Simulated assay, not measured.
Amino acid sequence: MLKRVLLIGLLLAISNFSHTPHLKVTDPGTWQNESVWDHTATLQSILDPSGEFFTQYTYAFDTEFVLRKIAHLSFFGLLALLIYWNLPKMKGRFVLAWLLLAGFAFMDEVHQAFIVGRDGRIIDVIIDSIGGALFLYLYDRFKKSKKA
């Protein structure tokens, strides 16, 4: 029961942060900004291969940027573990957990592209997916070392 509550709680927390415009990890005062939908954005405009979704970052490589990427790795790594722990024991459980995590990461970035003051980037989906894969790998190694 606790595993499900934690999973739902983290999904909601990530979604809430994604819905917060002009969010800065280094400024807690920005963590509760009022959301504004970009009514000019469409799924087609967001997923256009020449669009911003598929471009590199346009902002500085500073403390805020580094902390934001660490947050991506950490939150989505933990989310991958929670997804894994909530799946039934079966062959391919690690892969399924990672695929579900990557799907959520993609949807989360698309969601951000609809929020004024946020941007969705495919590179963040990759970073989130790497975080999930890393945490799942480390957990698998930990489990195997406990058996030895």
Rank of each mutant, 00 (worst) to 15 (best):
Y137M: 12
T58D: 13
R141P: 00
W85K: 11
P21D: 10
P88H: 11
I127Q: 02
F104R: 03
I70Q: 00
L47D: 08
D62F: 07
L82R: 07
P49Q: 09
D62I: 00
G29D: 13
Y137S: 15
D62E: 02
G117P: 06
D119L: 11
W85E: 12
L87K: 09
K91E: 10
D124G: 04
I14E: 03
I122C: 09
G9Q: 06
L6W: 07
F114T: 08
Q32D: 03
D62T: 02
L81Y: 06
F76D: 00
T30S: 15
E52H: 12
K91A: 13
R121G: 04
T63M: 02
T58F: 01
D140L: 10
L100R: 03
H19A: 12
R68P: 09
L78K: 08
A60L: 02
L43Y: 12
W37F: 15
R118V: 01
D27M: 04
R4S: 14
K144Q: 15
A97L: 06
N16Q: 12
S18K: 08
Q56W: 13
Q112K: 04
H72L: 04
F53H: 12
G117D: 01
L78H: 11
L96K: 13
A41R: 15
S35Q: 08
I122N: 05
S145I: 12
T42Q: 06
D140E: 12
N33P: 12
L81K: 05
K144E: 15
L6E: 09
L100Q: 02
T63L: 07
Y137I: 10
Q44M: 11
F65Q: 02
A105V: 01
W85M: 12
L101R: 03
M107R: 00
A113W: 04
F65G: 06
G9E: 05
Y84M: 11
F65R: 02
F76P: 00
I115E: 03
L2C: 06
K146W: 10
V66H: 00
K3A: 14
F61S: 02
